[in-house]
């Protein structure tokens, strides 16, 4: 199971990275979503995989016994999913506003903060 998951995680990373290397900002955003899923699966798989037994203690027990999934990566990923979503929404709105202001979705043409040209900084004191 871990081997298949590793391969799947690799595919998620490859797809995410490939999209993020694009110059079109919407592709970069989709790449970030895939990248987030890749990282979540990476953490999940690194915590080892158990099938179908959630880490919930039975009502008549005091502690979790027997085979169950690892709760720690789940707790990490749960919050990560929600944060990734907020981050994604933020980037999306940022891209939208940038597009409205600059009229371009190409990152090469976004040069407001770092304009092109050879202007030297002031040389005086």
């Amino acid at each position: 199971m871990e081997a298949v998951m590793s391969l799947l995680v690799g595919c998620f990373f490859a797809a995410g990275v490939y999209l993020m290397l694009s110059k079109a900002i919407i592709r970069i955003l989709i790449g970030i979503v895939l990248f987030g899923n890749a990282v979540n699966l990476l953490i999940f798989t690194a915590g080892r995989i158990t099938r179908e037994a959630p880490p919930v203690i039975a009502p008549d027990m005091d502690r979790l016994t027997g085979i169950a999934a690892n709760p720690l990566p789940q707790a990490l990923i749960l919050t990560a999913i929600v944060i990734s979503f907020s981050f994604f929404a933020f980037l999306l709105v940022l891209a939208l506003r940038t597009y409205q202001e600059l009229g371009s979705d190409n990152t090469v043409q976004m040069r407001v903060a770092e304009p092109e040209g050879d202007t030297l900084p002031p040389l005086g004191y």
Binding site: G10, A14, Y18, L42
Partner: peptide, 14 residues
């Protein structure tokens, strides 16, 4: 680059 990253993470995770 993307495939290199994917292979790297797969190997790392394995």
């Amino acid at each position: 680059i993307a495939i290199a990253c994917g292979v790297a993470f797969t190997l790392l995770l394995l």
